[in-house]
Nucleic acid binder design. Sequence first.
DNA 1: CAAATAGTGTCTATAAGACACTATTGA
DNA 2: TCAATAGTGTCTTATAGACACTATTTG
Lengths: 225, 225
Amino acid sequence: MTSLDPTGRSLDDYPRPSVAVDTAVLTVARGALCVLLVRAPDAEPSLAWRLPGTFLHVGETLADAVTRSLRQKAGVADLHPQQLHVFDDPARDDRGRVLSVAHLAVVRADRVPARDGNRLVPVADVPALPFDHGAIIGFAVTALRERYRTAPDPSGLVDAAEPDGSFTLRELRLVHEAVAGHRLPPDAFRRTMRHHLTETGRTSTGRRGKPAELYRRRGGPSVPE
Amino acid sequence: MTSLDPTGRSLDDYPRPSVAVDTAVLTVARGALCVLLVRAPDAEPSLAWRLPGTFLHVGETLADAVTRSLRQKAGVADLHPQQLHVFDDPARDDRGRVLSVAHLAVVRADRVPARDGNRLVPVADVPALPFDHGAIIGFAVTALRERYRTAPDPSGLVDAAEPDGSFTLRELRLVHEAVAGHRLPPDAFRRTMRHHLTETGRTSTGRRGKPAELYRRRGGPSVPE
DNA sequence: CAAATAGTGTCTATAAGACACTATTGA
DNA sequence: TCAATAGTGTCTTATAGACACTATTTG
């Protein structure tokens, strides 16, 4: 800790910014892509709802800080956050110089506990948020849509009725439509996704029309769970 | 500066990491995609060459820090850095906890001054580098290749012989081939790029074969210069 | 049976790669 | 003339969207 940088000053001679992480937790609920907002207890009411975040502790990775903040502030566990962007406007936080490393996390809606301080809001209906939280959601939605453009449910959002996790192309398509924000042509969707799926040989039952083939992702989820 | 965060502690109570920026400056020189390495004066010889970087000053944006480091350490000006990724391994710097925000900057080779402490190295021949600098170059090359996949020279690397900045499809293709790292079929390249170009009505001259049409980018560069 | 859902066949438009071909210049 | 470069025509392949059609189930 005493070695010098090329200017001959030690690391301790520099004033340092605070580093925060803020995370857009995205999920699909009631057919819509939603983001998790949490209530900040001590904030003024109009800006009390915001993305979960925390300050980075020294010795901790960014992913660890994201995981810790989501566990403590929303009760959500086992996420695999992805970095999006560093927000660095010197005036973005009036408490001082704070950099925020924005993250995306994706989780099935049933793993977000219903709490007084949790809200799942459709991304189309997000209210004004403090700091850069609106922009962070924009980055997150863009990244998730890109991730879902070609691969079948890479983040495991399908809430399969089958105990073995297999799903029908309809269930898969409804998740992709929620992520994309618009309808997808069923025939083209089938032909595109089929290459990345394995047939189970079994069919779904109970629903109205013709029973549907059950599929599994080939090679498991892109983002491990 | 005295306001409190939700835990009731002020910002000053948290130990803070140092934040650095490190930049892969990419350019095309002698037909190859190259990265700029600079010599760190006080480092041990085997690891003296590295990416230009600096610590973020409080009150400064990341882009400003990148610009300052490139001006001071390499004499390169007027860049428009793009954030790539935050490297956050707690052990990545033995001087203490240092986060590095990796950046990409793109510049024509003739704007990199020839200096004793500057080296342009083809990205295929990059030696072992300290910290995460090898990984940063990987991120940068991937980002630049993606940027050049569909748009004609979005970062203005073509060194046009014409005074008005117009160029032939051959000149454009050679730059794209250097970025991609492999040859591109001339006819398909022409048909793809043509949609994004405006004819000037004039032709190049002086070279061996049939004179080539001169084109300009439609709507100017994607990254302003 | 009617409605709903699953799944296929096929036509069109588009784009990229391959390859042959013509056109125009300098050495 | 020959080599080099510019540019086009066209064939093949692949993919996405559109749309019609068949298949199978429940209400």
